[in-house]
């Protein structure tokens, strides 16, 4: 009977602590989301053309600058840098929202394969064998 009570209490306490969901409903997270979302409209044609590809580490990369008109190259470079900075800030904001700033690398790791999974057919993504078209 005593053992049962221990187990029950342990199970209850485990549930209370273990069922924590990752929180991402903070103003900081939303602000970054809004920026990434706005930038996506500009980046989309470059994902489709293959000028920009998705890395395995949750960043994006200029993979075919030659396909981009000279006049647009600088702006595209800025877009890619800003996107990578914002993604890093997104991971940091989510970690902070959960009061675990040290989770940032794990959150990045959780996001990295999901960006690739959500990529549209035709986009270029990095794999263990190099660049592949989805």
């Amino acid at each position: 009977m005593k053992l049962f009570a221990y187990l029950l209490l342990l199970a209850l306490s485990f549930n209370a602590c273990a069922l924590e969901n990752i929180r991402f409903d903070t103003p900081g997270v939303r602000a970054v989301e809004v920026r990434i979302k706005a930038r996506h409209a500009e980046l989309l044609p470059y994902y489709v053309s293959g000028a920009v590809g998705l890395n395995m580490d949750g960043t994006i990369v200029l993979r075919d600058i030659a396909s981009v008109p000279l006049a647009a190259r600088r702006h595209l470079n800025d877009l890619v840098n800003a996107e990578n900075k914002d993604r890093e800030m997104l991971y940091a904001e989510i970690a902070n929202a959960n009061a675990h700033p040290e989770w940032q690398p794990q959150i990045r790791k959780a996001f990295a394969p999901r960006w690739i999974a959500h990529a549209q057919p035709g986009w270029w993504v990095m794999s263990d064998d190099g660049w592949v078209q989805k």
Partner: peptide
């Protein structure tokens, strides 16, 4: 939960 959050956000 982190994977689910990533899916939602992406």
């Amino acid at each position: 939960s982190a994977t689910k959050a990533a899916d939602r956000i992406i």
